[in-house]
Design a protein around this nucleic acid. Structure first.
Lengths: 118, 118
DNA sequence: TCCATAGTTCGAATATTATCGAAATATAAA
DNA sequence: TTTATATTTCGATAATATTCGAACTATGGA
């Protein structure tokens, strides 16, 4: 992933409403949920929600599929995974800088967690 | 971490120049580098660089410390760690959705990596 | 003290983004 | 075919962010 592309993804997530939408879809898992459900949960005007869904779709963080009258949205986990990998790649010169994350963890040396789970 | 705060961090990273600055600091590790070095590497006007450094500092993604005439900047790894933890928390209903990341990995069931390291 | 270097702040022009009512499109049910 | 529901597109407005020259502050050296 290149900086430009990563910046686009981060900018897309860098808005309270869009991040809330994305988190909802991330928690929903691969099954996803439809736009009405999102609208209800977040209380956004339809046009505004559509604007943000289009933005997230355009950069590839989510995808929508029509299912009769509804459009089912789901998070693109592969894209999120690549984004996180980009953010943590070549980080911190081997120091164990990210206790909650797999950073600096390509050799297996830091697999055991410290007990903190969130 | 709350959505609002996470969105602020993501928005800060959601700009090509700021992301480039941040990545530079992440790769530099805890030692950090000074503003001139960043300016040289990224070829940004001093005022523009300062603007972006201030933005990243304000949200807590980096910190600067004066060292004689230079100001030494370094990434705040703890903040980045929390941000990533927020993005992946409660994700995907237990599916192994993020092969490169520790998502869904609080029980130890998916510790062994698949061989891909980047 | 005077000068050079490192970096920030100010200010103004420019560009981008967000919001949401109203109108449009798509599907399904009556 | 008419009506209702789900969602998007359009358009205008308002808000926010970006850029960078010029002036300023801080530090160190001559």
């Amino acid at each position: 992933m290149e900086t430009l592309n990563a910046a686009e993804l981060l900018a897309a997530l860098g808005h309270e409403s869009r991040l809330a939408i994305f988190r909802l879809l991330v928690e929903a898992g691969p099954a996803g949920i439809n736009a009405s459900a999102i609208s209800q949960q977040l209380g956004m005007a339809p046009a505004t929600l559509s604007f943000h869904l289009a933005h997230l779709s355009r950069v590839g963080l989510i995808a929508g599929e029509r299912e009769s009258r509804f459009i089912h949205y789901s998070a693109n986990f592969a894209t999120m995974d690549e984004l996180i990998a980009f953010l943590t790649s070549n980080c911190c010169q081997g120091e164990p800088c990210l206790p909650k994350t797999t950073c600096c963890d390509t050799t297996g040396k830091r697999r055991a967690k410290t007990g903190k789970t969130a």
